[in-house]
Design a protein around this nucleic acid. Structure first.
Length: 802
RNA sequence: GCUGCUGUGGCGGAACAGGCAGACGCAAGGGACUUAAAAUCCCUCGGUGGAAACAUCGUGUGGGUUCGAUUCCCAUCAGCAGCACCA
C-alpha cells in the first residue's frame, strides 16, 4: 500500500463534496430535522485560531452522524463581521472596513473549507451585508414600536485628550488605552434596550431548555433575581416617602440610619430644606470623578456625608434616624436608597463604625462588637418579632404588618441592567431613528430599510465622543418621516452584539427579502436543536439573543419561545506552555500549518482527542503524532483486508461494543473516549492480523465523522459503492456486546487477593464458592470466620473475615 | 469578598447512580529491522523493597461513613473562571 498523501486526498474530497452539494440542508420537510449551531466567527485579520477548530469539530461530528442517521441536517456558518478590530485596521491602513471584512471573510472561508467542515455553504450570512442588517434594523424598530427602546443619561468613560467615549475594556486602570490620559466620567445620553422587562421570562425560560448546569447557573447569576420587600420611610421635615428595597425586612428594628445614592433625586428636590447642600454636591462630584477602578478598590473604606435637615422615620417603631449619602449605594439597583442595619450587614457595619452610628443587635448568634453577624438566630430587640428563630417566619410576619400599615410590600429585584445599545463608531448598523425638533424621536419607515451605512473616507471617531457618521452632513440632515420638516439622523451605530442576536433565524431562510425568514422555514427548523460555543458567550450573547428571540415570539414572528433547545460549551485550547494562547506570549498555533503538515483529519482527531471536550487543555505537538499514527494504521489496514461480509467470531463482541461506545460518546461529547475506543479496536485488529470487508466498512463508518477525508478515500478504494458520508450509521446488538465469560476480582476484607474467570450469567452462590476454591483466596481466609460475602455482578467478590 | 469549576503517573487524560485506579495516547528506556537514520514492529514503563513470585504504599491534605471511597460527607490547601459594595 502506498503512503497516505493527505494533501492530495483531502483536496480531492473537498472538491467532490462542494461540487455535489453534499452537505446542503434539503427543503424536504417530510424528513426529521436537526439544526446544529456553532457560534459564527468574527473574521479578524489574524485568520482562524485552533480554538475555532475545536469549537466547530464537536458539532461537526454530531451533524455528520445525524445525516447518517437519516436526519435533514442544517449546519450553517456565517460571519459576525461588525466590530472594532476591523475599524481599527481601517483607521491604521486607510483601507475601507468593507474591503478589510471581505478579505478576511474570504480567508476564513478558505481555511474552514480546508478543514473539511460539512457546513451548508449556500446559507452563509454576513452581518454587515445590507440584506442582513436591514433585518437587524427591522427588529430594532419593532422593539422601538413596542416601547423596548429608550434613551437615558448615563456616566460613560471619556478621554478628554482623545475626545472619545471608551468602553470599560479600553479604560482599564482609569487610563485611556491609547494616550494614557486619566479617564473622566461624563454624562451622556445613550440608547437602551429594556431587557430588564424580560428578566423574569429569561429566568423562567431556563426551565424549558437543556443547558449544561454551569451555563444555566451563570445565566441565573447574571439575571440575579432577589426577593425582598419595599419599605417606605417617611421624611420628618416634609411630606415625602423615602422608598427602599431590602432582602431582610426582618431586621427592620435594627435600622439605625439610611443611605441614599449620591445622585438620588430627593437631594435636589429638597435643596431648600437641606442645610449642607454644598458638602453634598461636593461629594457627588468626587464620586463622579472616581473611575470604575477606584470604586472597586476602596470597598472596605466607606465614605459619605450626612444630610443635614432630613430625618427619616422608621415606620415600625416611629424612631427617627439620620440619612446619609454614600457611593456604596448605587442609583442603578433597587430604589437607590437603603435602610442600614449595621449589626447584620457588613457594609452598613463598616459605615457605622466609621461614622460612629449606633449598632443594634436584632438577631442573636454573633458578636456585634467585632463584626456584623449575617447568620440566622433568635430575634431580639424587635418587639413583636422577639423569640422567632426562623428567618422566613420573621419576614412573613413583618411583611403582614407593613402591608396592613400601608408602608411596605413584597418586592423583586434583578441585578441585570438594561442593555446599553449604541457605540460612537463607524463599523456597525446605523440606528434607524430620526430626531425631529417637532416630533421627537421618529422611526425610519420600514420600507426605507436598510438605512445604509454611508461611505466615508475618515473612520476616526468625531470629536467630543461623536460617531464618525456625525461628520457627514448628507447623512445627518434629513426630513422627518412624520411631519416632513428638517430633522437630523441618529449617528450612533449598534453594538457588535446586535447582529449575533438573531443570526440563527436568518440561517433558516438566508436569502429572503420579504421577511427575516419565512414562517414555513422557521416552523420547520426552529428551535436550534444543539448550540455549542464558548463559555465567554454564555452570559451576554446568550442572554441577548434569547431576549431578542423572546420578543419576536411575543409579537408572533417566531414559532417557539426559546431559540436553543440545548447548549454546550467547549474548553479552551491553551498554548504548549499551558497558558491561554495570545499573540503577545507567542504561543499561538496556526491551524493552517497543522493542516499543511499533518492534514485536516489529524487536526480534527487531535483537537477532539486531546482531553475532555468541555475542559481546557494545552496543545501538544507530540500527542498529535499519535493521532497521525492512528490514521496511518487505519489506512494500512487495506493491506490486511480479507473477504467476508459478516463480523468474524473473534471480533463480533469487540465490533458491537465499539459501535455502542462511539455512538453514545458522540452524544455526550465524550469525543476523546470515542476515539480511544476506536484505537483500542484497531489494536485488537492488528493483534488478529487481518480485517474483513464488513469489519472495515463498519470501522471507517464510525471514524468518518471525525476523519472524513481518509475514510471516504478508503471507502472508495475498497469499492463499497456510493460515498461513505451517505451511508447509514452503524447499528449494534446489545446482546452481542456481552462476553460469555468475565474476569472478576476476588477481595478478602476489601483487598484484592486474586482474579477468577467465571461465566457471565453465574449466580452469586456459584461465584462465591468458585472464589473460595481459588488457592490464594483460600489461603487468605484459612482459619478465619466469614462474616459477610458480597458479589457485585460481573465485577468482584468480597469476602469479609474476622 | 461571593459564586462555580478543577486537583489522578514524567505529560494529556480514562474510570465515578461507591466495586479490579491509571483505558487510550504521548514521552522515556530496551530490543528487532537497516551500512546508518527516519518510518515500522516487539518488550518495559506510579513509588518503595525484591533476581523473581510477591509484598507494601498510592487519586492535593486531614478526618468520617462503608465489607469496600478517585467517586459520598465534613474540614483544609492550591489553581482556574465568572461576578464584584446588588441592599
Amino acid at each position: 500500500m502506498e503512503k497516505y498523501d493527505h494533501a492530495k486526498v483531502e483536496s480531492k474530497w473537498q472538491k467532490i463534496w462542494e461540487e455535489n452539494d453534499c452537505f446542503k440542508a434539503s427543503e424536504d420537510t417530510s424528513k426529521p430535522k436537526f439544526y446544529g449551531l456553532v457560534e459564527f466567527p468574527y473574521p479578524s485579520g489574524a485568520g482562524m485560531h485552533v480554538g475555532h477548530i475545536k469549537a466547530y469539530s464537536g458539532l461537526e461530528v454530531v451533524c455528520r452522524k445525524r445525516r447518517m442517521e437519516g436526519y435533514n441536517v442544517l449546519f450553517p456558518i456565517g460571519f459576525d463581521a461588525y466590530g472594532l478590530p476591523t475599524e481599527n485596521t481601517a483607521i491604521k491602513t486607510g483601507v475601507h472596513p468593507r474591503k478589510v471584512t471581505d478579505t478576511n471573510i474570504e480567508k476564513f472561508t478558505n481555511q474552514l473549507k480546508k478543514v473539511g467542515f460539512s457546513f451548508d455553504w449556500s446559507r452563509v450570512v454576513d452581518t454587515t451585508d445590507e440584506g442582513y442588517y436591514k433585518w437587524t434594523q427591522w427588529i430594532f424598530l419593532k422593539m422601538f414600536e413596542h416601547g423596548l427602546v429608550f434613551r437615558d443619561k448615563t456616566l460613560v468613560n471619556y478621554c478628554p485628550s482623545c475626545k472619545v467615549v471608551l468602553s470599560n475594556e479600553d479604560s482599564q486602570g482609569g487610563k485611556c488605552d491609547i494616550c494614557h490620559t486619566d479617564i473622566v466620567q461624563k454624562t451622556k445620553e445613550v440608547w437602551y434596550l429594556r431587557i430588564t422587562e424580560y428578566a423574569d421570562k429569561l429566568l423562567q425560560g431556563l426551565n424549558e431548555v437543556n443547558y449544561l448546569p454551569n451555563i444555566r447557573l451563570q445565566q441565573e447569576n447574571w439575571i440575579g433575581k432577589s426577593t425582598g420587600a419595599f419599605v417606605n420611610f417617611k421624611i420628618k421635615q416634609c411630606d415625602e416617602m423615602l422608598r427602599i428595597y431590602t432582602t431582610r425586612p426582618d431586621t427592620l428594628y435594627g435600622v439605625t440610619f439610611m443611605v441614599i445614592a449620591p445622585e438620588h433625586p430627593i437631594i435636589d428636590k429638597y435643596k431648600d430644606i437641606i442645610g449642607n447642600m454644598e458638602a453634598l454636591l461636593d461629594y457627588r462630584e468626587q464620586c463622579a470623578k472616581k473611575s470604575e477602578f477606584e470604586r472597586t478598590q476602596l470597598v472596605k473604606d466607606k465614605t459619605g456625608v450626612k444630610i443635614d435637615g432630613l430625618t427619616a422615620v422608621n415606620p415600625i417603631n416611629g424612631k427617627e434616624i439620620p440619612v446619609y449619602i454614600s457611593d456604596y449605594v448605587m442609583m442603578g439597583y433597587g430604589t437607590g436608597a437603603i435602610m442600614a442595619v449595621p449589626a447584620h450587614d457588613t457594609r452598613d457595619y463598616d459605615f457605622a463604625k466609621k461614622f460612629g452610628i449606633d449598632i443594634i443587635e436584632v438577631i442573636k448568634g454573633g458578636d456585634i462588637s467585632k463584626e456584623a453577624y449575617t447568620g440566622d438566630g433568635e430575634m431580639v430587640n424587635s418587639e413583636m418579632l422577639n423569640g422567632i428563630t426562623n428567618k422566613k417566619d420573621a419576614i412573613e410576619k413583618i411583611l403582614t404588618v407593613l402591608e396592613e400599615k400601608g408602608c411596605g410590600e413584597k418586592g423583586v429585584q434583578y441585578k441585570m441592567k438594561d442593555w446599553a445599545f449604541n457605540r460612537q463608531r463607524y463599523w456597525g448598523e446605523p440606528i434607524p431613528i430620526v430626531h425631529c425638533p417637532k416630533c421627537g424621536m421618529v422611526a425610519v419607515p420600514y420600507e426605507e430599510l436598510p438605512l445604509k451605512l454611508p461611505p466615508v473616507d475618515d473612520f476616526r471617531p468625531g470629536t467630543d465622543g461623536e460617531s464618525p457618521l456625525a461628520k457627514i452632513d448628507s447623512f445627518v440632515n434629513c426630513t422627518c418621516p412624520k411631519c416632513g420638516g428638517a430633522a437630523k439622523r441618529e449617528t450612533d451605530t449598534m453594538p457588535q452584539w446586535a447582529g449575533s442576536s438573531w443570526y440563527f433565524l436568518r440561517y433558516c431562510d438566508p436569502k429572503n427579502d420579504k421577511a427575516f425568514a419565512s414562517q414555513e422555514a422557521l416552523k420547520y427548523w426552529m428551535p436550534v436543536d444543539w448550540y455549542n460555543g464558548g463559555m465567554e458567550h454564555v452570559t451576554r450573547h446568550l442572554i441577548y439573543s434569547r431576549f431578542w428571540h423572546k420578543f419576536l415570539y411575543d409579537i408572533g414572528e417566531v414559532p417557539c419561545s426559546e431559540p436553543y433547545a440545548k447548549r454546550t460549551a467547549q474548553g479552551l485550547i491553551l498554548g504548549p506552555d499551558g497558558v491561554k494562547m495570545s499573540k503577545s506570549r507567542g504561543n499561538v498555533i496556526d491551524p493552517n500549518d497543522v493542516v499543511d503538515q499533518y492534514g485536516a483529519d489529524v487536526l480534527r482527531v487531535y483537537v477532539l482527542f486531546m482531553g475532555d471536550y468541555e475542559q481546557a487543555a494545552p496543545w501538544n505537538e507530540n500527542s498529535m503524532n499519535g493521532c497521525k499514527r492512528f490514521l496511518d494504521r487505519v489506512w494500512q489496514l487495506q493491506d490486511k483486508l480479507v473477504d467476508g461480509d459478516e463480523y468474524r467470531p473473534q471480533l463480533v463482541s469487540a465490533m458491537h461494543k465499539t459501535i455502542k461506545k462511539v455512538t453514545a460518546d458522540i452524544e455526550s461529547m465524550a469525543f476523546n473516549t470515542a476515539i480511544a475506543a476506536m484505537m483500542t479496536l484497531i489494536n485488537t485488529i492488528y493483534d488478529i492480523g487481518s480485517i474483513n470487508r464488513a469489519e472495515y466498512k463498519t470501522f471507517i463508518t464510525l471514524l468518518n465523522p471525525f476523519a472524513p477525508h481518509i475514510t471516504e478515500e478508503i471507502y472508495e478504494k475498497c469499492g463499497f459503492g456510493g460515498m461513505l458520508h451517505e451511508q447509514k450509521w452503524c447499528e449494534y446488538d446489545e446482546a452481542l456486546c456481552v462476553d460469555d465469560t468475565v474476569e472478576i476480582a476476588v477481595q478478602v476484607n476489601g483487598k484484592i487477593k486474586s482474579r477468577i474467570t467465571i461465566a457471565a450469567d453465574a449466580d452469586q452462590s456459584e461465584v462465591i464458592s468458585l472464589a473460595k476454591q481459588d488457592e490464594k483466596t483460600a489461603a487468605a481466609i484459612e482459619g478465619k470466620s466469614i462474616v459477610k460475602e458480597i458479589y457485585v455482578k460481573g465485577k468482584l467478590v468480597n469476602i469479609v473475615v474476622k
